[in-house]
Design a protein around this nucleic acid. Structure first.
Length: 928
RNA sequence: GGGCGCAUAGCUCAGCGGUAGAGCGCUGCUCUUACAAAGCAGAUGUCGGCGGUUCAAAUCCGUCUGUGCCCACCA
């Protein structure tokens, strides 16, 4: 036993209490929550006293207390007075009433990894935390809560309702911060912000006033997207279009009688003036509000009707036939009913022809027009009206189902109702131009680059942004209306007008208005705080491509506008969406949504983070399955145990690394590889290639360090002497650096192991590894050869059915090869005993210039061996044939680069040598 | 209707001009003194179809098929 472990009723942080009599604690070390590992004098007497770790890695025990310790020590706080170069990333603020899902866990992992690395690199790092009030979404959530109590927001009244939302916010906001802590997010908690905070509200008001004064905000009556359930306007991008089945009906307007002879597929334009005209629509109920029929100006079928009036069925009204370019003569009958108050296109046509806007639906989508349909819901009205028209013989064609694209409210999925109303707008033209230019001229880079076209496509074709919402939860529009029609926009330092008849606008702002200011409002803007100076612009924005338009483009517009042309960040790194293990979108209704906490409980936060990072190819969706998280947990366990091994064998970070001439080939090989990996990981970080850097580290750590270097070092340690001392230092070095490289992705397990290994305060504030430039190609080749021989002999053993542990007497002929110094290691890895008395080789394996003769004390399985060799021979011959063909191709020799030709020549030589070797081996096999 | 992307091992994905890769899964043997959440060995692909460019194509070009996403005012 190297140590004594006592179970104590307290955690590690309390002073160690000695339970076992006689044991004298010398040093306590980090351990499971309720177990304290005590290194005693007893331990000191053994060869290598080492702090001990439990044999199995238990994430919950390891992760528990670390995070709060980091926070207490202030590692994550950012000092605006620091001389260090700044590195700023803002959190894409989650909805305050929500909870984090795997998508957040993914995003946070990436941001946390970036900021942890930069912190280690010596930057003054700010990961800005905070939450979004998420106007409509939050209001809906609270309204649903109220509905359970049988109360509506109108019962409460505005003030009480808003009070209620704040209450809700205070309750649920903590959930997100808890989840972030659990994930390990290294955010500057003291700077946490909320979009409805006083300061941020002031920023909103400031920017509103400025835009208003610059005439970039205006109020106008337009057709907007109206949600009849949320009872508010929403912007274009809050509308989700999906194909719905509807019914396309063709309705004859005008005289029914006059239709007889012209009833045809041509739509019955009729040759007689004043006869009739057939229009097609999917929204029959809006016909009550029709104020015209439009045809294309050059459509000869209807030329005679233009300028005349025609009877609108069911209403007794007569409406004009107008000519408008918008109409596509090829579509349907070539004639369109025009409802300016309920369709954006019709509104435009109406404007061009001075048509009246006749609203026939109220804010809930109920018919208001006097008559038999009044009071019907829009969908009921549709069938009722079609029925009535059919009774009059006016339905000339029906197409059902007719699939067409219908807008839905992105928050509640209710079918959008285009509605004419007075709203506030941002004139985006100049703002969007600047936002586009900043990317075009390279001041802001978008990763991956393919996403740029999407960005341009949007900012270059932007309609004005409707920013007013008929909600109660949000920033109230700072405009006051006077008794005599005065309109006053109130800035943050202005006094709001008081007195008889003055009222404030009742609408609030679109939630994205305030989140568009996030990169600087969180820093204290509009005050010129030191933080604004230090941390603006942000270094990089990490977010999903799904909110490129909602959020990113708005931040660009506002950032450039408010901060005198300085874009809010230099780089936009877009990530994909998290999907399930089959690549399906995660959704609650489909039942494949995962609560990240469940997986963190089962496998640890590190495992969840590593899995997500490993799947993070830029801009591409990330599938994740529980099996994969399990695999990552296994990786963490592997790191854990490798470090345990190292500690038990006295790996150390004390003192300088021995000079190269004292190092073994294995030492030089692993250090050479280590430095290559440092360089590789850095390059991947700089390119936001999280999947690649995670994969690089995974394979380096597991395959090279743990499976080879550690295995090789066992022999060295066993032998003892100066070589073992050197190797202990190298192993310490390799683990130290590897743990530091891994830390940004798997912060918890690396913190535990690194502090135990090095005795350092925390890996969070350790230096990020630097490529020392040390490379040793010769050592790399040498170890690769060792690996080749070992693998080949292992294969032989396996094919021969030898048990892995079975010792086999063997002779190794290594003289004259670089392998001689590795004989002991090879014997150990291959379970080969010295060839003693009566050694009689039954198999001889020539490989890579060496020869390994084995005594299997008996006959070998000739058939298995023959099969194996035959297969190898086949492969070698195929290789030879391919290479020969290539080298026989003159065009190839003439045009291919010398490097490639040499490579093929090398391959041919190797194949030929293999053929000779294998043929000889085959010939040497005893015949059956 | 426009635009972008993707089709590679059973699954999810890398590779993007010079001998097909990873993780998981699968087969066999093993508790070989860090780890069975492990070790070792192994199997598996006409790189969606068809044309073209090239000495050389999974990789570049065209085309077809399938599939996903974004945008758009198709009544």
């Amino acid at each position: 036993m190297l140590r004594d472990v006592y179970t104590l009723p307290t955690s590690c942080t309390t002073p160690p209490t000695v339970v076992a009599p006689g044991a004298k604690p010398i040093r306590s070390c980090y351990i499971r929550a309720r177990t304290l590992c005590v290194v005693t004098e007893n331990t000191q007497q053994s060869n290598h006293s080492a702090p001990e770790l439990p044999t199995q890695y238990t994430p919950a025990d390891v992760e528990g207390p670390l995070y709060e310790r980091w926070v207490e020590r202030g590692y994550f706080e950012a000092d605006e007075k620091s001389d260090k170069p700044p590195y700023t990333v803002v959190i894409p603020p989650p909805n305050v009433t929500g909870s984090l899902h795997l998508g957040h866990a993914f995003e946070h992992t990436l941001i946390d990894a970036l900021t942890r690395r930069k912190r280690m690199q010596g930057h003054e790092t700010l990961w800005q935390p905070g939450m979004d009030h998420a106007g409509i979404a939050t209001q809906n959530v609270v309204e649903r809560e109220l509905a359970k109590e049988g109360v509506s927001r109108h019962d409460l009244g505005r003030e009480a309702f808003v009070e209620r939302v704040w209450q809700w916010k205070n309750e649920s906001g903590g959930q997100i911060s808890g989840q972030m802590r659990r994930l390990g997010d290294g955010v500057a908690w003291s700077r946490e912000r909320f979009t409805m905070d006083e300061g941020l509200s002031k920023a909103v008001q400031t920017i509103f006033k400025r835009l208003y004064d610059d005439e970039l905000i205006y109020r106008a009556e337009r057709i907007i997207n109206w949600c009849p359930r949320c009872l508010t306007a929403i912007s274009d991008i809050e509308v989700e279009y999906q194909d719905d089945d509807g019914e396309l009906v063709s309705i004859r307007y005008g005289d029914v009688e006059g239709a007889e002879q012209s009833d045809s597929t041509e739509g019955g334009g009729g040759r007689r003036a004043g006869a009739s005209i057939v229009v097609a629509t999917t929204r029959a109920e809006t016909m009550l509000g029709d104020t015209a029929v439009a045809v294309h100006p050059e459509d000869e079928r209807y030329a005679h009707l233009i300028g005349t009036e025609i009877e609108l069925p069911l209403t007794g009204r007569r409406i004009p036939v107008v000519a408008d370019e918008h109409v596509d003569p090829e579509f349907g009958t070539g004639a369109v009913k025009v409802t300016p108050a309920h369709d954006p296109n019709d509104f435009e046509i109406g404007r061009r022809h001075d048509l009246p806007n006749l609203a026939v639906l109220d804010e809930r989508g109920v018919i208001t027009a006097h008559g038999p349909f009044q009071g019907l819901d829009r969908f009921e009205a549709r069938s009722a009206i079609v029925g009535a028209l059919r009774a009059e013989g006016r339905i000339v064609a029906e197409k059902r189902p007719y699939t067409h694209s219908v807008g839905h409210c992105s928050r509640c999925k209710t079918t959008i109702e285009p509605r004419l109303s007075m709203q506030w707008w941002v004139k985006v033209g100049p703002l969007a131009k600047a936002a586009g230019d900043a990317v075009r001229d390279g001041r802001v880079a978008i990763h991956p680059k393919e996403m740029e076209s999407r960005y341009f496509g949007w900012v270059d074709n932007l309609h004005d942004w409707c920013i007013s919402r008929q909600l109660w939860w949000g920033h109230r529009i700072p405009v006051w209306y006077g008794p005599n029609g005065e309109v006053v926009c109130v800035g943050p330092d202005d006094e709001a007008p008081t007195g008889e008849g003055w009222t404030q606008d009742t609408d609030v702002l679109d939630t994205w208005f305030s989140s568009g200011l996030w990169p600087f409002s969180t820093l204290g803007w509009p005050e010129q705080t030191p933080s604004v100076g230090k941390f603006y612009p942000n270094s990089v924005l990490v977010t999903g491509y799904d909110i490129l338009f909602f959020w990113v483009a708005r931040m660009m517009m506002f950032g450039l506008y408010a901060m005198d042309g300085t874009p809010p960040f230099h780089t936009i790194a877009l990530h994909g969406m998290v999907r399930d293990q089959f690549g399906k979108k995660m959704s609650k209704s489909f039942g494949n949504a995962v609560n990240p906490l469940d997986w963190m409980d089962a496998y640890g936060s590190d495992a969840v983070r590593f899995t997500l990072a490993r799947g993070a190819n830029p801009g591409v969706d990330v599938p994740i399955g529980e099996d994969w998280v399990q695999g990552s947990r296994n990786f963490a366990n592997k790191i854990w145990n490798a470090t345990r091994f190292a500690l038990m064998n006295g790996a150390t970070v004390e003192g300088d690394l021995p000079p190269a001439e004292q190092l073994s080939a294995a030492d030089r090989w692993i250090l050479s590889r280590l430095n290559s990996v440092v360089a590789e990981v850095d390059a991947h970080y700089d390119d936001y290639q999280f999947a690649k850097l995670s994969d690089t580290l995974f394979h380096f750590a597991w395959d090279e360090v743990f499976d080879w270097y550690v295995e090789l070092s066992k022999t060295t340690f066993m032998a003892g002497g100066p070589a073992a001392e050197v190797s202990r230092r190298v192993l310490g070095e390799v683990l130290d650096v590897t743990l530091r490289l891994l830390h940004p992705i798997v912060p918890f397990v690396t913190e535990t192991l690194w502090t135990t290994l090095t005795g350092g305060e925390s890996v969070v504030i350790a230096d990020w590894p630097k490529d020392s430039g040390f490379r040793d190609a010769a050592a790399e080749r040498e170890i690769e050869t060792v690996q080749q021989v070992v693998t080949e002999v292992r294969r032989f053993r396996s094919d021969q059915g030898l048990q892995p542990g079975q010792k086999v007497p063997a002779q190794l002929e290594l003289t004259g090869t670089a392998l001689a110094p590795h004989e002991a290691a090879m014997r150990s890895l291959l379970r080969l005993q010295p060839a003693g008395e009566g050694f009689s080789a039954t198999a001889s394996l020539p490989v890579a210039g060496a020869k390994v003769a084995l005594d299997l004390s008996g006959t070998i399985d000739v058939e298995a061996e023959r099969k194996r060799l035959t297969k190898d021979l086949g492969a070698a011959e195929k290789e030879k044939a391919q290479a020969t063909a290539k080298l026989g191709n003159e065009a190839f020799l003439a045009k291919a680069p010398e490097k490639v030709v040499d490579k093929i020549r090398g391959r041919l030589e190797a194949a030929e040598a293999d053929i000779v070797r294998i043929t000889a081996q085959l010939a040497a096999l005893p015949t059956a």
